[in-house]
């Protein structure tokens, strides 16, 4: 049950209508905050954006990033699980062949941020811990559609090392 405090409307008597005492009361409150903030800087709730940026919460889903293996190569094996799971159909992959045991890799890996809804399905579908949305980078608006199309290099530049076990077999 919500407590409701009913405040009687003060009568608009001559004191109020002359506005000078009320103005004085208001200036007293503003002046107190002004000098307290100026001298002690205690209890300020605003931050000095853009010099000081607030951290996103840990589960924030930002721009995608592609993770790397220990040898620096991309972890993605171009299995298309992410683009299959994607409800917005925003991921386009062209797969290629490499000569080591990982065999398959993405030649191109494009995320169209115009289409992306940042649902995180791709991250969940990925069997290789290759795609993540934990970059903490907010998707910035762009002037052209082409700029919204982020390729493999863009996504890798946000990426870092992941040593999660790939596949399922122990080596």
């Amino acid at each position: 049950m919500v407590k409701v405090k009913v405040v009687e409307r003060p009568p608009a008597d001559l004191v109020v209508q002359s506005w000078l005492p009320e103005l004085w009361k208001g200036m007293k409150v503003s002046g107190r905050h002004f000098f307290v903030n100026l001298l002690t800087q205690k209890g300020i709730v605003t931050s000095q954006y853009p010099e000081v940026k607030r951290a996103y919460p840990p589960r924030f889903r930002g721009k995608h990033r592609l993770m790397r293996r220990e040898d620096g190569s991309v972890r993605c094996v171009a299995c298309f699980m992410c683009s299959t799971a994607c409800p917005a159909d925003c991921i386009s992959i062209v797969a290629g062949q490499r000569d080591d045991e990982n065999e398959k890799f993405p030649v191109t890996f494009e995320v169209d941020f115009i289409k992306c809804v940042f649902c995180g399905m791709c991250e969940e579908a990925c069997p290789c811990d290759a795609i993540r949305l934990d970059s903490g980078v907010h998707r910035a608006p762009a002037y052209t559609r082409k700029e919204e199309l982020n390729g493999k290099e863009d996504l890798l530049s946000l990426g870092s090392l992941s040593v999660a076990r790939q596949g399922g077999e122990f080596k």
């Binding site: 094996v77 171009a78 299995c79 699980m81 990982n102 065999e103 398959k104 596949g167 399922g168 077999e169």
Partner: peptide, 11 residues
């Protein structure tokens, strides 16, 4: 069997 279904074309 290598169970490499993610990179297998037959998957």
């Amino acid at each position: 069997h290598p169970v490499d279904c993610p990179i297998c074309d037959q998957a």
